[in-house]
Design a protein around this nucleic acid. Structure first.
Length: 265
DNA sequence: AATGTCCCCAACCGCCATAGC
DNA sequence: CGCTATGGCGGTTGGGGACAT
């Protein structure tokens, strides 16, 4: 038996939002928040829209803390780093970029960063000069605790806005990356290395059993890399610790996938 | 100026997790 | 414990603007 749709799609408006609809949603959210129920919200707000559509519009566009415009180099680095560690967990990645949404990050990756990586991958096939370091990207070192993605989405309650005030909380299931990943974008076939500092990776999952091997949020099931001496490399180009290596799908053909050690993908 | 192609990104779709009954 | 409703997420699509021919 199929799942009942969240709303009758033949009776709700779809497609781009008008300024009037935006204003109505903003006004309602400002006064009432979601009230904990997105499905009922459109009716209360006088909108002929699906609740999911309202939620998306609010979270991705109307929220006052949304940052519009181009990504900075620093943000690029954060995305690179996290993507190389956790893959396409856009909501988790976005939670590290205040004002950015998962949709933003996903679009940015798909339209810009992925191509950038591909281009550099191509370049690397044309030259083997690893001594050129101008394009070498030392990915951002995270020494601060990362944001709980659930807290980031705390607007589902009475709070109308995402809550980045939780940044200072040390949360159990996000990683505390105490090492620098060195990732040469110009020569992605070179070893993706980690420093020797320990990296503790707790649960990135929001549910813990989605089929990925990321553990649950319980402290007892924290994944940990004992050390960063285990390393990942681009497939076919270097050493891979098969025991610990995990294939990371970078979204390209399999020849460009990479192994990451100590992560469960 | 007209047409074709590419690219970006807002919005949608469908699946899964979870809460509540 | 099973079912239903809802929230959340990642993947995909398509409209429209930018650019090329």
């Amino acid at each position: 038996m199929g799942r009942a749709p969240c709303c009758d799609k033949t009776k709700v408006k779809r497609g781009p939002w008008s300024p009037e609809e935006d204003a109505a949603l903003k006004h309602y959210m400002h006064n009432n928040g979601t009230g904990g129920n997105w499905i009922a919200l459109p009716h209360k707000a006088g909108l002929n829209r699906c609740g999911k559509s309202c939620r998306l519009r609010w979270l991705n566009y109307l929220r006052p803390d949304i940052k519009h415009g181009g990504f900075t180099e620093e943000e690029d680095n954060v995305i690179w780093t996290l993507y190389s560690n956790i893959g396409s967990r856009w909501s988790v990645i976005a939670s590290q970029l205040p004002g950015r949404t998962d949709n933003d990050v996903k679009n940015y990756w798909n339209t810009k960063l992925k191509k950038k990586l591909l281009a550099r991958s191509t370049n690397s096939n044309e030259t083997t000069d690893n001594s050129t370091t101008t394009d070498h990207l030392n990915l951002t070192r995270f020494s601060s605790p990362l944001i709980n993605p659930k807290a980031e989405n705390s607007d589902q309650g009475n709070s109308a806005y995402g809550d980045h005030s939780t940044n200072s909380d040390t949360l159990p299931y996000l990683m505390n990356v105490n090492c620098v990943q060195s990732f040469d974008l110009k020569h992605p076939t070179s070893q993706l290395s980690y420093s020797s500092n320990p990296v503790e990776v707790s649960d990135f999952g929001t549910n813990g059993n989605t089929g990925s091997s990321i553990s649950s949020t319980s402290s007892s099931s924290t994944l940990a890399m004992d050390n960063c001496t285990s390393f990942a490399s681009w497939a076919g180009t270097g050493n891979v610790n098969i025991e610990d290596g995990i294939l990371l799908d970078l979204g390209f053909d399999s020849s460009n996938d990479t192994f990451l050690s100590g992560f469960g993908f």
